[in-house]
């Protein structure tokens, strides 16, 4: 059947089994690399995208369920040439090792900043709890999120907002 989805502002009409998890549609049909297969169980967050502005596990979201809803992926935050603010903060903090989790981390964190532009440390940590990193990049990810908060406030150095 034909399912039309809106990803990063563009509509895509697909002839597809509506049960297909959004993750595979993004990766294999739309050729977007950001969302990753990590567990397929909604336990690690590597596949996180936004659906109508809320962070969701694309690995467990049937594409038929999101027809007509707004989907945003890490590609929608910016590009390597024109990175979004949060991406800039991650770049500045070099907040990646293998980086496989990072697109999910970015989307998870972006959802927090969209809702709460000035989260405190405890709120950031609690919000990021759903996403796993195995390389141990957590400290840098937290710094990058704090840096993004500071950048939004016009503070150039994330030093000022370290706990």
């Amino acid at each position: 059947m034909t399912v039309t989805i809106t990803v990063n502002g563009a509509d895509h009409a697909l002839d597809i089994d509506p049960a297909t998890p959004l993750l595979y549609v993004l990766r294999d049909d739309l050729e977007l690399n950001g969302a990753k297969y990590g567990c397929g169980l909604g336990q690690c967050g590597a596949c996180t995208v936004h659906i109508d502005g809320k962070p969701a596990f694309s690995c467990l979201t049937p594409v038929g369920a999101v027809a007509g809803r707004r989907i945003r992926t890490v590609e929608g935050l910016g590009s390597a040439d024109a990175p979004g603010l949060l991406q800039q903060a991650f770049e500045k903090e070099q907040a990646a090792q293998c980086g496989y989790c990072i697109a999910g981390m970015l989307m998870r964190a972006q959802a927090l900043l969209d809702r709460n532009p000035d989260p405190d440390e405890a709120q950031i940590r609690a919000h990021m709890q759903t996403n796993l990193c195995r390389c141990g990049t957590h400290m840098r990810i937290l710094r990058a999120i704090r840096r993004a908060v500071a950048m939004r406030k016009g503070v150039q150095s994330a030093q000022d907002v370290r706990p």
Binding site: E75, Q87, E91, A96, G99
Partner: peptide
Amino acid sequence: IPAKLTGG
């Protein structure tokens, strides 16, 4: 890192 942050 840039590609890893932007879906490259």
